[in-house]
Computed example of a mutant assay.
Amino acid sequence: MRLLIITDAWFPQINGVVRTLSTTRDKLIERGHQVEVLGPDRFRNMPCPTYPEIRLALCTPVSVGRHIEAAAPDAVHIATEGPLGWAARSWLKRRRLPFTSSFHTMFPQYLKLRFGLPETVSFSGIRRFHDGARATMYSTPTLRAMLEEHGFGNLKRWVRGVDTDVFCPGPAEPLPYERPIQLYVGRIAVEKSIEDFLRLDTPGTKVVVGDGPQREELTARYPEVKFLGTRRGDDLVRHYRAADVFVFPSRTDTLGLVMLEAMGCGVPVAAYPVQGPLDVVGDSGAGALDEDLAAAVQRAIGTDPEVCRNRALQFSWDQSVDEFLDNLVPWPARALQGETA
C-alpha cells in the first residue's frame, strides 16, 4: 500500500503525537508498505503564537493538493486538525476522496487554558473537521466515551504501543540528587499542569526533562527543581531508569505515551485519576492514581518494577499497526486520473 500521512505535528517537534506517527510509519515500512509523511517542513512555515517550538505550515488546499497528487496514494490519513489538516480535508472533500483521521490532542482544553475560549466552541469546530472522515481513530475507551458525548461518530479504535525493547530496565543515568527522584518528561506548558507537580511538598528531588514555553518562568520560580532540558534516545531511557517514580500531572492528555515509556523501564507512575492515566495505569498496580498527587507519589514509590514492566508489555506496536491498517479506507482504482490541482 502507498499511504500518505498528513500531519501538522512532525519533526523537529518532540511529543507523543510525533513519536506515535513516526513509529507507525517505521513499522509500516518494515512490513513492506510505502509511507510518505506530509508535514510543515514541506512548506513555508511560521512559529505558532505562544508556542514557537510548533511550526505552522503556510499552505492552501491547492498547494496541499499538489503534494497529494504527486504522492499518488492508495489511502490518506489526516492526523491533526491544524492548517495542513484543514487544507487536506478541503481538497479531498471537494473531490469526494475518502480519508481517515485520528484524535490525539485535547485542543478544546488547551484553548480554554490559554485563551479562555469555551470548550463547546472549539469542540464544534473539531467535530466538524472529523465528521468529514470515513473513520476517526481513538486510543482509549475513556477517550471514545468523551468523543461520543460530544457528538463524534464513525469512531474506530487505534491502540497505542511502546517499544519495550528500547524502554526497558538497564543502566541508569547516575543523577547526583537526593532520593527519591521524582521525574517528569514532557512539554513544559500550562496545559500539562506541571506546576501541580512542582509545588508538591514531597521529600527527595524533582527532575524535569523537556522544554516548552513555560521553562524559563518555572526555572526561576522553582530553583530547587532540576530542569535538564530535552533528552533523546538512550540518554532519555537512562533518565527514566534513574527515577523512583514518574509523575504525570496532566489532566488534558488523551493517552500519555511517556507513562508507557516509564513503565517499560520499570518505573511506577503517579497521576490523577483522569483520562489517560485511567487507561494506561488503571488498576494494574503499576503506580497510583489519586486526586491528591502527593499521596499518589508516596503510594507509587516502591512498586515492584516487574509489575510496571508487565503493564507496558500489554501495549504492543504490532497490535497498534494492525488496527491502524484495518481502519484505513483505500481509494478507488485510478482515483486521481484526470485531476488537476
Rank of each mutant, 00 (worst) to 15 (best):
E178D: 14
G256L: 06
L236R: 06
T205K: 02
L97R: 14
H130G: 08
C59W: 03
G233Y: 10
S139I: 05
I68R: 01
G186H: 07
P180V: 05
I68L: 06
A88V: 09
S101D: 03
F227G: 07
F227D: 08
A296T: 01
A88R: 05
T80N: 07
V245Y: 02
L260N: 04
N310E: 14
R238V: 04
P213G: 04
A243F: 11
S250A: 15
G338E: 06
L143C: 07
C308I: 03
Q182E: 11
T142N: 09
D279I: 01
A189Q: 12
G32W: 13
L113V: 09
G151K: 12
R19W: 00
I78S: 04
Y110E: 09
R160C: 03
L4S: 02
W158Y: 11
S101Q: 03
D290R: 02
C265T: 03
G229Y: 13
P330L: 12
V269S: 01
A300C: 09
I6W: 00
I78N: 03
R114W: 10
A295N: 09
H150K: 15
E261V: 00
T80D: 07
I29H: 08
P277W: 00
R238E: 12
G212C: 06
G125P: 00
D211Y: 12
S22F: 08
I126Y: 04
V208Q: 07
L84V: 09
Q182D: 01
V208Y: 08
E81P: 04
D196L: 13
S122V: 14
F152A: 06
R231P: 02
G85V: 06
V225I: 11
L218E: 03
